[in-house]
Write a protein that binds this DNA or RNA. Structure first.
Lengths: 95, 95
DNA sequence: TAACCCGCAACGATATACGTTACACTAAAG
DNA sequence: CTTTAGTGTAACGTATATCGTTGCGGGTTA
């Protein structure tokens, strides 16, 4: 069981992509082809990274879309697992 | 570049979980705590596997939620990559 | 025939991604 | 001090997605 809160991918994006290149949010949003608000929401953890956005990031920053989606998945999964005790689910397979 | 269409996770779910246990859709849906329609949509490729659903599957079938979300991610990513040429994105990092 | 299972259409509630516009705050430059 | 650039974010609209309920037609089986 992994027990530490995975960072929101937006934080990583800012620290690893925008800051090293000295990019402003406005500049990066324009280059990515999205609105400033859309990028800002991601950077501040108010929106997730969609598959389409992951592809945009891969094109702009020469990375893999998979790595971005993977981070998003880990983040979503961690939050979903936190509430798993509230789900009433019967076991269907033998342990 | 991976070039083969990844299967929809719903197919895998049916083949690897429902059929081996001889479960009907109705039974499985009840055990998972979702409506028959919800599960049917997933099995027939009309809905994706959400993080919450992945946790339900992990509890019912003694698997990892990550494996289900990973399959969903590969599926979504493949479809997003297919249209990446339509995205107007500027490169921001040196190759 | 009757009981059960299935896919699916229709409708609503809720959430997310994305856009535009507008406002207030900050920091830097004139 | 005034102007400007950058930022966060609220409001509002649109499109799409998950998930629920209800109901219907078709298939299988007892």
């Amino acid at each position: 069981m992994k027990m530490h809160n995975p960072p929101h991918p937006g934080e990583v994006l800012r620290k690893l992509c925008l800051e090293p290149l000295g990019l402003t949010v406005t500049e990066a949003a324009k280059a990515l082809g999205v609105s400033r608000k859309t990028l800002s929401s991601i950077l501040n953890g108010r929106a997730g990274i969609s598959p389409k956005m992951a592809v945009r990031l891969s094109l702009a920053f020469n990375t893999t879309a998979e790595s971005w989606l993977n981070q998003q998945m880990q983040y979503d999964l961690w939050h979903a697992e936190r509430n798993r005790k509230r789900l009433r689910v019967q076991k269907l397979s033998a342990a």
